[in-house]
Computed example of a mutant assay.
Amino acid sequence: MSTLTSETSESKPSPSPQASLGAGPSLDIRPSGIAAAWMLARREWTRFFRQKNRVVSAVVQPLLFWLMFGAGMRGSFSWTTSGQEGFFEYFLPGTIGLIVLFTAIFATISVIEDRREGFMQGVLVSPVGRWPVLVGKVVGGGGIAWAQAVLFLGLVLLFGMASPGINTVYALVLLAVMSITLCSVGMIVAWPMTSTQGFHAVMMLFLMPMWLLSGAFFPIPAISNATSIGQSILHWIMRCNPLSYSMVELRRLLYPEVTLADNVWGPSSMITWTVSLLFMVGSLVLAGWLMRGSRRADLV
């Protein structure tokens, strides 16, 4: 019996160096999650710059809104104690927020297209897991949104619509937080969707009203000035909108010398930064949980 075992063991071919190299678990070479996330983020950048219409529309369209609405509604309301700042200055942070929102929408809608073309299924069955998909999409789309917002902000500073300073650095950080947040919200909306038409419907129903009710287009009235139930309801709806806090802080950073009027609601900087960061973390966690729990969307 021992002779048979010895002969059997001798008859087995010795493993090749290549097989031995991949046998040990410590030497098992697989794509890391960071590399996969970076690949997806770089893919978003490459796709964006190859589509020239996206580059132009994401900046030109909000710029046209700012110029047209600013010219048409100049002097329509006063939102500072001095009364010297008009709608051009007020709508400027809202325009930057609109640039970030549009870019986040265009970046996350590609999830539906990638699933339809089979690319997303190939990524999901890879051994890297699901978090690189979320990180890659958020970092890629958020980086594009941040770069476009910074470009527009640079033009604003160049033409003297705002004064540069240390607050500009804080504004860049806040824009990064807003970019990550809105891209995460876009992932939450886009991941369960099976068609781009449904995504656009939800975008018009949810994302655009979230921007409009963030104080980007008109000031949030103070609760003390509410003269009707409708104004009180509007105040609390806008106050419960997490994006409102980012808009208030961005406006404060661009115009630090401006003091809000008594009839305009404006929380402190500590509250605005806290809510903005919590909104970013909550959106990322919810997007990650949705991607882990949704199996139906993987098979579409």
Rank of each mutant, 00 (worst) to 15 (best):
V177D: 05
N167A: 10
G143H: 03
A35T: 04
V189G: 02
Y255T: 00
M178L: 15
S9M: 15
L250M: 12
L124S: 01
K137P: 06
S195M: 07
W146M: 06
G282L: 14
L158V: 04
R43K: 15
G288W: 13
Q61T: 09
L278Q: 03
V248C: 09
G33Q: 11
F152Y: 14
F206S: 07
G70Y: 09
D262H: 14
L286T: 08
G22V: 15
S110I: 11
E257K: 11
L250Q: 07
P267I: 04
A162C: 06
S232V: 10
T108S: 10
V135G: 04
R130P: 00
T8N: 08
P127C: 09
G97E: 06
F91A: 09
S195R: 12
G33N: 05
F91R: 05
G266Q: 10
I96V: 14
L21I: 05
A107Q: 11
V125R: 11
S244V: 01
I233Q: 04
I188W: 05
S16L: 11
M73N: 03
F69C: 07
G186M: 08
A162H: 04
G94Y: 08
R116W: 01
P13D: 13
M68K: 05
W211G: 03
W66C: 01
K52L: 11
Q51I: 11
Q61N: 01
W146C: 06
V185I: 15
V173M: 12
A190D: 05
L172W: 14
L27M: 09
G22A: 14
V189H: 03
A145I: 01
T103I: 10
F77E: 02
G282K: 12
M270Q: 11
V173P: 04
L234P: 03
S269G: 05
A145W: 02
E257Y: 12
R295D: 07
H200S: 10
Y170G: 02
I112Q: 05
N263F: 14
V185K: 03
A41P: 08
S163P: 00
V177P: 08
L290K: 14
L182H: 02
W79D: 02
G282Q: 12
E257S: 11
W131G: 01
L67S: 01
S184W: 09
S14F: 13
S269Y: 06
A41Q: 05
K137L: 14
A19T: 00
W45P: 03
A147D: 00
I271Q: 09
W79F: 10
I237V: 15
L157W: 02
F48T: 02
L64A: 01
S20T: 00
V300T: 12
Q84W: 12
F87R: 00
L98I: 04
W289Y: 14
S11D: 04
K137N: 14
F152H: 02
I96Y: 03
S26E: 09
S232Y: 12
G83W: 14
L172F: 15
